[in-house]
Design a protein around this nucleic acid. Structure first.
Lengths: 208, 208
DNA sequence: GGATGTGAATCCATTCACAGCA
DNA sequence: TGCTGTGAATGGATTCACATCC
């Protein structure tokens, strides 16, 4: 296929496809069509085909996609072949929940370091991980950790972000309600829980 | 302004604008321009203007937007004038964190009921709320609760969703990694934590 | 002068429709 | 025949540029 910039939206759907494939019976047929996959995930089949086509000819015309090969292919694209270690910044209510969250396993991502500002929490061992002072963030580069999850109060978010960037972190999952300023080579994905909830009442039928 | 369908993206930005306005000094100038607001929130100023223009002439040419009036206006649009009560389904790690989450206050949304499947948790009182059996979900309609937060395992998600819809819930914030089938008059907003994290490695510089 | 509100233009993503291959 | 891969068409949302109004 000729060169095309891969849309962010496509990248975002690849993990969804991967999870869909993982939940597929491994024993039965070895192949799956774009239509079958689309049906399970509630997306359109041309979307699946176009998304995958950005990365070369992965499927077989007349047959479909080999399930195992497709899984491997998506993992390779997303760089999820070998386990990624992530740093969790902030061990408050949300941080603690994220540390126990099991939904990262499918994607071979694992939280392997936890940082805190609160001195009372530093040094505690949680889920076999010793909570470190945020000043230790600078050690992330030599520890090979380049992904971070930010679950701290908004006020400190930019300070800590700067530290993360200094430490060579290239991807940040931001749970704070702040815009994080970062260079273009650092990817920030925002999850704004408050905003997501605040949208709902708008859609309620009038009178409810 | 003539009739135009309001894009979902616009609705999603309104809470962001609202939060931005709330953090603005209340004492100083009474007005704010689209440019000032855009700067704080890191969006483009024509975007702010177009978003707001969907709802009539809110601003004053040559002056800007009256901060207090704009806040009130956005709250009215989003139906956030009076406090909305929300039901939390699932008191696991994530559910517990969400119950303590303080980021809903800005938007006048408050969790006022908690439901669980696990009998060991039912009856416990957390944050002054007594955890109820999921079978009680049917009581939501007469309790005037029409928004729900779903933080349960994927397996049960559709079953519980059906219960919520039966109970008249019109908006669901879905933290499960499943597609929820719902009628068009029920709004589902998805937060897929695993997928959001799984996207990050793709953007890392090669070799990292 | 200065900032809004908005049609027009642009950009981006989704969907279609079909050529080409197994 | 059946399904992929893809250029073309469509559909939406963002951005521009300017007429309009305080």
């Amino acid at each position: 296929m000729r060169y095309h910039k891969v849309p962010d939206e496509t990248i975002r759907r690849l993990p969804v496809y991967l999870r869909g494939l993982c939940s597929f019976p491994n024993d039965g047929s070895r192949s799956i069509s774009s239509q079958q996959l689309a049906e399970v995930l509630h997306v359109k089949s041309p979307q699946v085909r176009k998304d995958l086509s950005y990365f070369g000819d992965i499927g077989t015309p007349g047959v479909g996609y080999d399930i195992q090969k497709l899984k491997k292919h998506i993992r390779t694209i997303l760089r999820l072949n070998n386990t990624h270690c992530a740093a969790l910044i902030g061990y408050g209510n949300l941080g603690a929940a994220l540390l126990k969250y099991t939904g990262f396993k499918t994607f071979c991502v694992e939280i392997s370091a936890v940082f805190e500002i609160n001195p009372r929490k530093i040094g505690r061992v949680v889920q076999k991980i010793k909570i470190e002072d945020v000043s230790n963030i600078s050690s992330l580069r030599k520890r090979g950790i380049s992904v971070a999850i930010l679950a701290i109060p908004a006020l400190e978010s930019q300070d800590v972000t700067d530290k993360l960037i200094d430490a060579g972190v290239g991807g940040i999952l931001n749970f704070t309600p702040s815009y994080l300023s970062a260079p273009t080579n650092v990817k920030v994905v925002n999850i704004d829980i408050g905003v997501s909830l605040a949208c709902l009442p708008y859609y309620l039928p009038v009178g409810a």
